[in-house]
Amino acid sequence: MIETEIELALISLCDGRISPLIAKPGTETPYICYRKKSELSLDVFDGPIGTSYCFQVNVFADDMKQAEQIKNQAYENLKSLRPYNVKGMQRYDKDKALFCATLEFSL
């Protein structure tokens, strides 16, 4: 399963504080949450020829510099999976009072 490969690529970061979708309340920062945003089946007349996935990795930290550094490390760790259409974003999550660096990519 592709989610397992992603988690294995990220587990060395944030002392293993990696969660699908959301982190448990009270999780120590920094931490990473990942999710599959979409799945696209590629079809031809003879049937399906493959599937493309879009994933998002969110790094939450107390400051943006730390979040960005971990996001960049995450990208390095994920390169073996051959991500493409890679995008990076930054934001401040008011509800969590944490900075978030996001990595979005397709596989």
Rank of each mutant, 00 (worst) to 15 (best):
C14K: 02
I32S: 06
R35G: 11
E76Q: 15
N77M: 04
I2C: 03
L107C: 03
R91E: 12
G16M: 04
A61C: 07
P20N: 07
F105Q: 03
E5V: 06
I32W: 07
K96Q: 15
P48M: 10
T51R: 02
I22Q: 05
A74I: 04
F45D: 14
L107Y: 14
M1A: 03
N85I: 06
P48E: 12
C33S: 04
Q66E: 12
F60Q: 05
D43E: 08
Y34V: 03
I32C: 06
D15V: 07
V44M: 12
K65S: 12
R35S: 10
D43H: 02
K65D: 08
A97S: 15
M89P: 09
S106K: 09
R17D: 05
R82S: 05
L13K: 05
V57S: 05
Q66A: 04
K96W: 02
S12P: 09
Q66M: 09
C14A: 08
C14Y: 01
R91M: 14
D43R: 00
F60E: 06
L42Q: 05
P25W: 01
M64K: 08
R91Y: 12
N72H: 15
L98R: 12
T27M: 09
S19F: 15
L107K: 03
N72K: 15
E7S: 08
Y53H: 14
T4I: 09
E7Q: 10
R17L: 10
S12W: 11
P83R: 01
A23S: 06
F99Q: 01
N72Y: 13
F55E: 07
L13Q: 13
T29S: 07
V59C: 10
V44I: 10
K24M: 06
Y53A: 04
E68L: 12
K37M: 12
P48H: 05
S106E: 15
S38L: 00
V57Q: 09
E3C: 00
K87G: 08
T27V: 04
L10A: 03
A101Q: 10
K71Y: 10
K71T: 14
K96I: 02
L103S: 06
K37F: 01
Q73I: 13
S41M: 05
V57L: 04
E7T: 09
V59R: 06
G16T: 09
M89N: 15
A61L: 00
P25R: 07
S19Y: 15
K24G: 07
I22N: 11
A23P: 09
K79E: 14
L98M: 11
S106F: 10
A101I: 13
Y53V: 00
Q69F: 13
P20Q: 10
Q73W: 11
S12K: 15
S106G: 11
E76H: 14
S12G: 14
S19Q: 08
G88F: 14
C54P: 00
L107S: 07
E39C: 07
T51F: 04
V44A: 08
L8W: 06
N77C: 13
Q73M: 15
E28D: 02
K87D: 15
K37W: 02
L40F: 03
V86P: 13
L21M: 09
I2K: 14
L98P: 00
A61P: 00
I70D: 03
I11R: 15
K65V: 10
N77R: 08
A74F: 04
G88C: 11
S41W: 03
R17W: 11
Q66F: 02
A9G: 12
P25V: 09
V57G: 11
T102H: 06
T4E: 08
